[in-house]
Design a protein around this nucleic acid. Sequence first.
DNA 1: CTCCTGATTT
DNA 2: AAATCAGGAG
Length: 225
Amino acid sequence: MNLLPTESTKSMIQESIIRWFDANGRDLPWRTTSDPYEVLIAEMLLRRTTATAVARIYSAFIRRFERPERLARARVRTIASMVGTLGLQNLRARHLQQTAAHIVKEFKGSIPDTMEGLVNLPGVGVYVASAVLNFAFCRPSPLVDGNTIHLLSRLFELEFAGPADRNAWDFIASFELGGQNKAFYWGIIDLVAMVCLRRVPRCEICPLHEPCIWRHKNKPAFKTG
DNA sequence: CTCCTGATTT
DNA sequence: AAATCAGGAG
């Protein structure tokens, strides 16, 4: 376990991630909308699934179930047949239908904009709730997933028990994101998906190769060009 | 802690 | 073959 990075290191890394994302981030279908329903659906579909898998079915899903009212009335079997390629389809379909029904009944069809309201939805935990707050309501809220753990572990050689580790949430919450929380969190996800690959990380194109402790230990002869 | 559940990566 | 994937519920 290493020492925690200084505030100035964190600030520099944060800026690098945001700048890199603005220039290189993926243009995924659910990132071009801030409609809370569409964002919530995306996050529920993305649970334990890759973004590329969700990208294949997302538009068709939204077209078919345009509003919560539509989804609430659909049969679980029908929903499951549309999300079958993602895995967890029965569980996922049940949660989608129940959440839609809950939203129609308790919130008159609009998505709650508070952590408490969101985590009470079936199939919505702290991660999905926080993602909706960040990506739909532009409200900065700490967000930690497997990607975050992976990136932080390499950058700072910190050891976390996993995505549920309170220390990881506290650490990510200590960043001062201002209004750039979306670019920061999307940037972390995309860096792990495109650059900080698990087996062969592409340090030569990584915006964080300079401060990265893992890179210094594993590619000491790395030239910055 | 276990289970859910399958495509994809390693 | 095993781990992982924008985790959550029981």
